[in-house]
């Protein structure tokens, strides 16, 4: 009886604790900012019925959601756990291939294909993570980079048609939803769920352990942490979320091919978005992805070639790493918070 009483009490405490936490969070600066952004994003598709707006401007936000998940997943392995991973396109592209092949060859419904693709990507993350147990620092980064080249080359030089689909890749995939607004909301909710999970991982004990491995691997091993297990977990988490982003990306474009889904540019995008927002701060990827998608949108609207756009971004990446290695989010938030405090008269 006593045990039951205690557990009831603790549950009650926990519930009210969460409530308290939520209320203080909403009143706090970052909480109110988040709520503000969420409200704007959830009403955004209804601002205009204009066709160009719905079918051209709204999909930019769809990209933003996909890229934000993707960049944050890179941040888990590299920023949080310190396992430099330059082969992010492996998980992104192969998840798209797995899901696409299932849909085209077996006629599996999209949502089941998404689930299987994510599981497949997680398994690939496990496989890639195994050498990471032994290989460190620059070597790991090179192994992942080369692995992505090899997979790209094997897929691009294979024969068209199953099982590897050749240079053309898989095309004719169904859209997530023919209506761009519904697609927008599916991805919006996915983004919220993914970020809640990733932020809570980052704040939980697991996140602390991963950070300790990043900062001092020998030290954390000496204090009884099974570094092998947690490094594998970091890789699998990273693969899980980038696999989700990858299959969404494939379904959005309705095609999966080596050049578009597996090239080094994809890994580069993840790195630039995470670095723009600040490496190691999961939520920075949101700012980075937003900045990337809309600067790209503007530059393409001006009439620049896609290659020139990438040159601009590589220069931005050079400048950000060189002069603002904390990323853009943290200084931006500091300034905003000062302003907020001034406004509230604190």
């Amino acid at each position: 009886m006593e045990v039951k009483m205690i557990s009831k009490k603790s549950i009650k405490n926990k519930v009210s604790g969460t409530q308290n936490y939520l209320t203080t969070w909403i009143k706090s600066f970052s909480g109110s900012l988040t709520i503000f952004c969420l409200i704007i994003l959830s009403f955004l598709p209804f601002f205009s019925q204009d066709r160009a707006y719905v079918s051209y401007f709204i999909p930019q936000f769809t990209f933003f959601f996909i890229y934000a998940i993707f960049a944050a997943s890179w941040d888990i392995a590299t920023g949080l756990a310190g396992q430099a991973n330059f082969g992010q396109s492996i998980f992104f592209g192969l998840a798209g291939y797995i899901g696409g092949a299932l849909i085209i060859e077996m006629g599996v419904p999209s949502w089941i294909a998404i689930i299987i693709a994510v599981i497949g990507a997680t398994f690939i993350g496990f496989l890639v993570g195994i050498p990471a147990l032994k290989i460190k620092g620059p070597y790991l980064m090179l192994v992942t980079l080369v692995l992505s080249f090899i997979i790209l080359r094997v897929l691009a030089t294979s024969h068209s048609g199953p099982p590897l689909y050749g240079y053309e890749g898989i095309s004719g995939l169904p859209k997530l939803n023919p209506n761009p607004i519904i697609e927008y909301f599916i991805l919006f909710i996915s983004l919220i769920v993914c970020f809640i999970i990733m932020m809570s991982i980052s704040k939980s004990k697991l996140g602390t352990i991963l950070r300790s491995i990043r900062d001092d691997e020998i030290g954390s091993e000496a204090s009884g942490i099974n570094t092998m297990k947690y490094k594998l977990i970091a890789f699998m988490l990273c693969a899980l979320f980038s696999g989700l982003a990858g299959i969404y990306f494939g379904l959005h474009y309705q095609t999966v091919n080596p050049a578009g889904n597996l090239s080094m540019t994809i890994s580069f995008l993840a790195i630039i978005m995470a670095a723009l927002g600040g490496i190691g701060t999961i939520r920075g990827s949101l700012v980075g992805a937003f900045f990337y998608v809309f600067l790209e949108f503007v530059l393409v609207e001006i009439g620049l070639d896609m290659d020139v756009v990438h040159i601009v971004f590589s220069i931005i990446l050079l400048l950000v790493i060189r002069f603002a290695s904390r990323g853009l989010l943290a200084p931006l938030l500091d300034r905003l918070r000062d302003l907020w405090d001034v406004l509230l008269g604190r």
Partner: peptide, 23 residues
């Protein structure tokens, strides 16, 4: 002082040179 930033910046520089040549 920062190992990961050093690797990232050489990666970015390599990518930059590659894109310039490609252009």
């Amino acid at each position: 002082n920062s190992h990961i930033n050093m690797i990232l910046i050489t990666f970015a520089f390599a990518f930059f040179l590659e894109l310039i040549v490609k252009e």
